[in-house]
Every structure is written in C-alpha cells, then in structure tokens.
Design a protein around this nucleic acid. Sequence first.
DNA 1: TTCTATTCATGCTTTTTCGGCATAAATCTA
DNA 2: TAGATTTATGCCGAAAAAGCATGAATAGAA
Lengths: 300, 300
Amino acid sequence: MELRQIKYFLGVAETLNFSKAAINLNIVQPALSRQIRQLEQDLGVVLFERNNRNVWLTPAGMYLRDEMIKLDKRFKDTLDYALSIQNGHVGTIRIGYPGSALYSILPEVLCLLQQKLPLLDGVLSEMAEVEVLETLVNGHIDVCFSREEMYDHPNVCQRKLFSEQLALVVPEKHALTKENFKSIAQCRSDGFILPYLADWQMYRQLIYGMFNKEGFVPRIAYESNFGATIMRLVEKNLGVSILPLSYRMGSSLKVRFIPLKTQTTLYMVWRTDDHSPIVRNFIDLCDEAARGLNLDFECG
Amino acid sequence: MELRQIKYFLGVAETLNFSKAAINLNIVQPALSRQIRQLEQDLGVVLFERNNRNVWLTPAGMYLRDEMIKLDKRFKDTLDYALSIQNGHVGTIRIGYPGSALYSILPEVLCLLQQKLPLLDGVLSEMAEVEVLETLVNGHIDVCFSREEMYDHPNVCQRKLFSEQLALVVPEKHALTKENFKSIAQCRSDGFILPYLADWQMYRQLIYGMFNKEGFVPRIAYESNFGATIMRLVEKNLGVSILPLSYRMGSSLKVRFIPLKTQTTLYMVWRTDDHSPIVRNFIDLCDEAARGLNLDFECG
DNA sequence: TTCTATTCATGCTTTTTCGGCATAAATCTA
DNA sequence: TAGATTTATGCCGAAAAAGCATGAATAGAA
C-alpha cells in the first residue's frame, strides 16, 4: 500500500467514475482500475461496489474516504511544520542582554519577532555586560546584545547593530543644562555613578577615555550595573552618570539627559559554531529592527 | 513521497545507522541511502545530519519521527476499523420482535451481542406479531423475530431458532392445576384472553387448532397483543389465556402456568436481498444464542 | 603511525512495478 | 439492434527500486 494508491482512491471516491478520475489523476483508466484493485487486496477491504456501468462506495469505503481526507490534511500540516522547524520559524531562542538594550533595540526586536516569527519563543535574560560573553560561550543563551567589540574572539561572531550618543545624566535641579554644557569637566566636582566595568571592557575605555581627554579622574560615588538604579540615585542627588541616550525613553524620573559627542555601539553576538537557522533568522530580524530604529530621541 | 520511504525513515531514525536499518528493512544499504535522500529532496527537509561515520536526527527530523509514529498508529487503527465495518462488526442493526421473544431469546442475544460485537449497536422495536413482516419488508428494521412460517415469501428468508411449549395461563385461585389438568376443554366455561390474530397467521391456526381438537369454540373475553397486559387481566380473574411458556420467566403476577403439549416455534427473519455482513453476523449470533438457550423453565 | 573495520555514498546492472495502448465485456440509450 | 459509455484484462515499454561492487572517510586498534 502506498500514498499514491490512497490518492487514487480519493480521486475515484470523489467522482465515482474510474474514467473521469483517471483523467483528473493524469493516468489512464486501466492503470487506475489496477491500482484500486491492488489497494483493495492489500487492505483486505472492498472499497467500491462496481459493475460494468456504475461505481459506488461501500460503507467501509465511505469511512476510509472520510478518515483519509482527515489524515491527509494532518499529514500535510505535519510536513509544513517540519519545514518551519528546518527554516528556523519554530522553536526557542534564548536572548541575553545588558540593561542598556532595554530601551532601544530590544522592544523593536520583540515586536518584529511576534509579527514575523510568531512560532518562535524568545526567552529573555537580562544580565550585566560583563556576564554576557561567558553566558553565551557556555551555551546558556543563544544570542546576546553587547556593547563590547570581540571581533578577535575565536568562538563568537559579532555584527554591529546601531550606534547612539552617550549622555550625561544629572538631577533635574542640577546647574548644568543642555544650553550651558560645554564639557564633562564641568562635573569635576560631582560624584559619578557608573556601572561596574572590568579592565578589559571596551566600554570602560570609552567612558574613561572621555575623562582622560578632559584631564580629570572622576570620583566614583556608587557602582551599579542597572540603569534604573543609577537613574534613581541621580534623581536623589547622589551623583551624576553617563548612560546611552536611549535610557531617556524609559525614564519618568526627575533627571536631565545632556547629549554628548561620544557614540556607543550595540552589537549582536552569537556562537561561531551555532548554525541553527533560528539564530540566523533572529540575527536578520535584529538587523531589520536596527535599520528601522528611530534614534531621534530629541523629538521623542 | 511514498509510505515506503516513511517506513524507511522510521527505520533509520530508530537505529541511526543506515547499514543496520537496511538489514532490518530487508533491503541493501545503498538502496536505503538513496530512498532517504529522495525523501529529503521531496520534503525539502533535511532529516539526518550525517558524515561518513555517524548519523543523527535534525530537529525537524526528530519532530517528523515523533509525528509519523503517531500518524502511523492512527493510520493502522483506521484500516482496522474499516475492516471491522466490512466484516459487519461495526454499525447498527434494527431488530423487530413480538413481545413473546422478550423472555426467551432476546436477552440472550443482546448479551452475546455485547460480548462478541461490542461495536454493533442494536436498536430494538417491540411490535405486534402482525406488524413484524411488513415493517421488515418496508426496510424499517433489518431483522425480526416471528412465530410465523413464511418460507414461501419471496422477499424474506427465515431460520428456525427454537421451539417451546405453549401454556395455559390461569389465575392463582383458579380450580385448574397442573395436577388435575387433562384438557383445555376444562376451560370451556372460562373467557379467553388472546392476542389479536389475523386469519392468515399460522399462530392463530395453532391456537385455534387446539380448541377444534377439543371440540369447542372459546369465548373471547378480551384481545391484547401484549403479554404483560394479558397476564394482568388473567390475574384479575377476567379470563384465562394461552401463551408461550417462557412468559413465566418475566412474571411475578399471581397467575399459574400449566404446560401444554403443543409447541410453538420462534423464527428469525431477514430480507432476502439484504447481504449486509451485519445481518449475517447477527443471524449467526441468534443461532448461537438459541443453541445455548435453557428452556427448562420448570426448574427456573 | 599504520592498518583494519565500519559506515555512508556512488556507479552500474538486474528486477520489479507502473503506466499506456488495444481491446474485451457489459450495459444503457436511441 | 447499433452505438456510446464504462470497467476489466493482456501485453509491452518505461520508470523506479533494489542489488552488487566499490570508493571514500574515519574511528579505533596494533
């Protein structure tokens, strides 16, 4: 018994006429008659009652017709789903990200994911920038966002998503404003609230490079890897900070963002040996999200 | 894509080894490799990752393996059920019977039906003996029980099931007992309660033959086609009756059954042109029930 | 390292199956 | 009764599948 014969059976069951069914099935009538007879022998079930003039279904034939139509549909659906799995449209992707991705690319990516790959589940893990790489390499996540360059790392690949300005974050009552701002050296006497940054991190060099250029060493009032915490401390007059400008989007606190010249870049990172189509699709999705990103926070 | 290829796929998925799977499938390994490759091309889905040494399933392959096992089971179940339909083990049989079958063969038949053909639904219609034949011929029922001989009827077939004695039914306080009973002529002065019997009915001839033999014409007090009604009237001293002895089984009324010599035969009847396997199975079942019937009501 | 055994893939040949054609047999219609 | 329609059967060529021999790669043992 073969699927071809079942297809033929359904063809005959539809027209109840071997000649016409044969035409629909693109074979000649004798071939069809033989295949149906073969099927009946294999099954041990008489599907059609027929004389030299008429054809009709037996009760068992009617039952089989109805069931085979259902099975055929389920079969096709199953194949479609398997194709979706192969194409990376179905499954789970574990995403690691530092808090600084939360107000820029991440919501856009998740919206796109919902729209374009609704069968793909995203599992989100927020973590400090310093943890991101190790978590990825250890296989606890599949992709991550990072502000670190790691083009020379052998086990991971990286792609630039977008750049944005850094901003000085001061309490609302602070004397410094966008208008009177000239240099962060004006905050020389303020305490700084900065994320904990390891020596090897490029982001650390980016931040501290700014201080060096202006010729002072900032006083560290507090360290925190969580933007929300940092902004709250700034609001409470406990210091000033430097954060990516997109943080402005998620804050209703009484703090002021003063854009700086310096840019920070967000990257998308994945394991070199991970050829999963899900990861590939997700990277493409992030690319698309980054291209569509509106970074004009001034007007936001 | 053919069922053969799916069978091969499941074979390889089980062992993850083309050579061993080929042995299990009774083909040579190159043939198996080619068929799997063909299947992968047809589906557009890579089922196995393989190098020259190892084979393992892709995610899509795992999904398809699990789903195909389920589909295969459902497919086989469907074919089994179709075979049951063909063999008359599944469906509905409409059974007509006169009340006099109710205490003898019918319960036995229904028990056997439940045991041996649990997927066969019996639809019961009690009706007067005079209606049974017409209802059958008109196609409102598929089989019926009857006490009439109709071997010469062109449209129906008939088979004898069993014979039993007739009995005189008298009120408990009636003077006549098994011991002092000699002839129904002793009831010459009693009113008789008999079913309505058309002239053409053999059963009528059977009953009235007894009266003729004893040389008297019974006085008909009441007519009823329902045994329960007749017995109740007898209990209430409104007359005596003649019924098949098996009625004793279903009665807790204050009536006495006095066995007579005369026998009555119950037949099973069906339409000549009805070749349904369900009817055939049911007839066989009734035969079996009749053979196993315990007619020794004396000891019951 | 080298040899052997195992495993999957490829090329060629044989066998089986399937489809096409001609036609028979049966039945309905004019 | 003749013609049209429909299913079944016999025969043949084409296509597909299986078998066989062998190649290529690799893991494991000597």
